[in-house]
Nucleic acid binder design. Structure first.
Lengths: 359, 359
DNA sequence: CATTTTTGTTGGATCGATTCAAATTCCGCT
DNA sequence: AGCGGAATTTGAATCGATCCAACAAAAATG
């Protein structure tokens, strides 16, 4: 009878092997996980039986529950999954994370979701030992969701108000000052800022009120850096248009349209991301404006694409790969402490900035 | 006493909540997984207790074992993890896979390993419902390893001898013929081939013997396609140098050196990947040879970078994203059958090919 | 030969949930 | 009050392994 059922779809379990080989499940387990402690003869017999019965090896699902550790880290974002492979910033970051994971043999699980409920479910059911959060649009919700899992997690590249969450970011103020100073020293006096989000789901010109109530303090800090430095040059920062985008094509172009609609177009653009800066370069060229002849642009991030554009982009480079590595290690050797690291930035002068045009 | 131990690190389990709320495990479980079937009053009480005790929600590790399904697909390669974020071909493929996964809410687990033992371990312990295999260097070993898991899997972009493994690839012969015909029609008569691997760990000029014993029949088919077509133009294919590389910079450059060392350099290069073709363009320019003035090049793959190079690359484009989507769906709606799909290719003429130079 | 050590093996407990048949409670109705 | 059926709740079984204390057998020691 039993033999009639053997062809069944039901996968073979370790216990089946043990019974068939006439050993206890303990021993059978040892054959696979610590073969050296079981007598050679027994070991071979069990292995033979396993082979013959078509045993797939200890099922990680079972092992997992016992071991408690998954040996994988989750990387989450509110963007669709393809974000990890499309976005240049994300890619460099992932390279750093990959490096640290490769070194310790940990895996990477990508978590994301088209819609809110799915995001929640995906975060709740991800099989990981901890999370690295890409806090872009919707970052605060992602942080809340993740916190519920009570697993270690690190937020990337944001100044999050909340000092109770671990985070790695860069010195936004210092970076922004570098960018602003460079342009001011080149003689620029009319500026515009292409800004990242201050809060979720907003775009358009930014008011002091928006800045004051910023959720993303990283954005606020960059703006503060720009303004502090420019003030030092006697520039009236209150007059500088600051347009908040979603860091993608559509809203950035809308921002440029709005900025250049005025009678006194800027000669210098401070972009809070290379992405926006690159989009701006394209937009300006299409409009017949020379970069840096008519308008100079400084980006922020230091993604590799910046070096390839024409003209190549002057930017504030974050140590993206290193941030990724550290974030991964923070999760991998988590010790329960909340850590907030601030990395330095590097100023990379390339071709998108030049002297202010003689008015 | 008990209260003294409560601050313990030990995470709270569903059973703890059940006990504290005075309900059975079953009911406690239902509160989280099917809240609608438990009486509102009880539900709220349990939720309150959970909240108050700091319960993280049902642990996916536990659920997993019971449910059996992970709801994630593993993507494996023998390259380091960063391959998924660096390599243009992989990135486009991942975008397709991501799309299918996003649509069904499945996650993606990246599997890879620096060395052989780790690869084995990672494949064996990956928590996934199935695998998509990037079969590049070392693909056959990866297939063997994966087969042992007895999970559904699909091999990508290779003609694998073994008809028992599911695979998705393109019509290599047809694609190669298109490329060869294009060049022959432009008047080219002296060719060289930059080839992908025929077997693992080989580089250098290829002999008929190597071709005959090819492990990667995809490579063999492309070569066959090139040769069939060229023969039709009365070209002696036996004289065409075929250099096998590892599809990266070093060996490709070595191949070019070797190919151009002869007295009769080719006027046309058939590259079996865009990667090699792009490297060749750089190499030729650095050598002072004009593309396509002195040498024409046709790639294979159709990665986005090809459109951006100078000159833009003429190539045989695979429907990479679509392949990724299908591969993911094959795993997601796996029905136990072995499927082998062959997709069509598209010939994309850009700027890297031109008429043969007048000798 | 008796006594310790060493080496291997056993089987129960555990990891953290879900499931389901059976038991119980609740309600409306005659 | 009594009854049937719907709505809830219970508790044991299960998922597939690993761990470990206890035991047994073999080898080394006195």
């Amino acid at each position: 009878m039993a033999s009639l059922l053997e062809g069944q779809a039901r996968p073979i379990r370790l216990a089946d092997i043990a019974k068939a080989a006439g050993v206890s499940h303990g021993t059978a387990s040892n054959v696979f996980s610590r073969p050296e402690i079981v007598r050679a003869e027994v070991r071979e017999r069990v292995k033979a039986v396993a082979e013959q019965m078509g045993y797939a090896g200890p099922d990680p699902k079972g092992r997992l529950l016992r071991a408690g550790k998954v040996n994988a880290i989750g990387v989450a974002t509110t963007e669709p999954l393809s974000y990890f492979f499309d976005d240049p910033f994300a890619r460099v970051m992932m390279a750093g994370i990959s490096e640290a994971c490769d070194a310790t043999g940990a895996g990477i699980a990508l978590v994301s979701a088209a819609n809110q409920e799915k995001l929640a479910w995906n975060v709740q059911s991800a099989l990981v030992d901890g999370f690295i959060l890409f806090c872009i649009e919707g970052g605060s919700r992602l942080v809340d969701l993740t916190r519920e899992r009570r697993l270690p997690f690190v937020a990337l590249e944001l100044g999050f108000q909340d000092e109770t969450v671990s985070a790695i970011g860069v010195d936004n103020v210092a970076g922004a000052r570098l960018a602003a100073r460079h342009l001011a020293e080149l003689g620029h006096r009319r500026f515009a800022v292409l800004s990242l989000g201050f809060a979720d789901n907003r775009t358009g010109f930014v008011t002091p009120e928006v800045v004051r109530s910023a959720v993303y303090t990283g954005t606020r800090d960059r703006l503060a850096g720009y303004f502090e430095e420019l003030s030092g040059f006697g520039i009236d920062t209150a007059k500088i248009p600051v347009y908040e985008t979603e860091n993608e094509e559509k809203s950035t172009r809308a921002g440029l349209e709005a900025i250049f609609a005025s009678g006194q177009p800027p000669t210098a653009i401070l972009a809070m991301s290379d992405r926006m800066a690159l989009i701006a370069i394209d937009w300006l060229r299409a409009r017949g404006l020379a970069v840096p002849g008519d308008v100079s642009i400084v980006g922020f991030d230091g993604v590799p694409d910046g070096a390839l554009s024409t003209p190549p982009l002057t930017t504030i480079a974050q140590p993206i790969t290193e941030i990724g590595r550290r974030a991964a290690r923070m999760i991998l050797d988590h010790d329960g402490a909340v850590r907030r690291e601030t990395m330095g930035v590097e100023f990379v002068v390339r071709g998108s900035t030049g002297p202010a045009p003689k008015a």
